[in-house]
Amino acid sequence: MDKNISFTLKVWRQNGPKDKGHFDTFQMKDIPGDTSFLEMLDILNEQLIEEGKEPIVFDHDCREGICGMCSLYINGHPHGPATGATTCQIYMRRFKDGDVITVEPWRSAGFPVIRDLMVDRTAYDKIMQAGGFISVRTGAPQDANAILIPKPIADEAMDAASCIGCGACVAACKNGSAMLFVSAKVSQLNLLPQGKPEALRRAKAMISKMDELGFGNCTNTRACEAECPKCVSISNIARLNRDFIKAKLKD
């Protein structure tokens, strides 16, 4: 059985995009180790409501690490201390009695704060709308097995496609670059034969949109790869850059 722990929680509070924001400090007592990080915040919120106060606002939904809704910058790391896991998959047994745990929102020019720990990530949708698709009509395409795709290629595309669009890569990056996100989608589609015809156009369009929305450039610090909850590799960025340069040379 897991032990209960007590710790200090410092949480970022911000009333709206224009508010300056501040930290609130809470003493958390006897939290069971098998409580998830978000359930711990639920417990705190229940306490706040009981005291007639407004609960802390944070994004969350599936709570099984796949929807990409939860965010949280915990002790200086997007999605906290674990590798290959989202905030909702962090359990309190990872922390020790007496710890000080600091919780902040994603901080990036591309993701303005909406309230407390909730940020606006619609920029990702806009990048997707610029080219994150294969132009195929709904209807009756050819039989699925008419396109043979070697297993290693399919597997590589799948690894790139496992990105959950949470924004941790941007939050981790000192430049606030969205290159890992963009490169994951571009790689998935450009690796596959179905995506080849639009490959160069896609790379160029998505990068242009990313630049336009105020995300920074990649300087190969690899922080994004280290913090990605789905372990998406930066080799995708190299592939994106190749396609981008090819597209530029063609212009």
């Binding site: 294969i134 209807g139 009756a140 395409p141 595309a157 998935q188 596959l192 179905q194």
Partner: peptide
């Protein structure tokens, strides 16, 4: 067929 054409891996 549709999903494969869309690039579902």
């Amino acid at each position: 067929d549709q999903c494969v054409a869309q690039g579902v891996p």
